[in-house]
Measured scan of single mutants.
Amino acid sequence: AVSDRLIGRKGVVMEAISPQNSALVKVDGETWRATSGTVLDVGEEVSVKAIEGVKLVVEKLE
């Protein structure tokens, strides 16, 4: 799938994300809905860990 190429890519949080709420991230110039197990604020850099349906699963870039 096209989205599989995004695993391992870096992105930027466009809307705050919490474990209860998905929000938008920008990866390679494209906007995607994403979820995370932690709270992520706007502007934080993230890494794509997986794809669940049409959502990216991201975590904060260390």
Rank of each mutant, 00 (worst) to 15 (best):
V58H: 00
A23C: 13
I51V: 10
L40V: 06
V25E: 02
V25P: 01
M14P: 01
N21P: 05
D28W: 05
V13K: 00
R33N: 10
Q20L: 11
G53V: 03
A34G: 05
D28V: 02
V13G: 01
L61R: 06
T38K: 07
E52Y: 10
E59M: 08
G8F: 03
K10I: 13
V12H: 06
V48G: 01
I7R: 04
V57Q: 05
K10F: 10
I7H: 03
L40P: 02
A16F: 15
A50S: 09
V57Y: 08
V39Y: 14
E45I: 14
S36W: 06
V58G: 00
V48F: 02
V58S: 01
S3D: 08
R5M: 08
R33D: 08
A23Q: 05
S47K: 13
D41A: 14
A23K: 03
S3L: 14
R9H: 07
T31P: 04
K26I: 12
T38H: 11
V57K: 05
A34H: 02
P19K: 10
R33Q: 14
K55F: 15
D41G: 11
V39F: 14
G43M: 03
V13E: 00
R5V: 07
A23P: 07
E45W: 15
L6H: 02
S22K: 06
A16M: 12
I7P: 01
K55P: 01
G53P: 03
V13F: 02
K10C: 13
A1L: 11
K26L: 14
V39Q: 12
E59S: 07
R9K: 12
K60Y: 04
V48H: 00
M14K: 03
G53N: 04
S18H: 09
S22H: 12
W32K: 00
E44R: 04
R5N: 08
P19Y: 11
G29S: 05
D4L: 12
W32N: 00
G8Y: 03
I7M: 06
G53E: 03
L6Y: 06
S18M: 08
L56E: 02
V25R: 02
A34C: 09
S3V: 09
T38A: 10
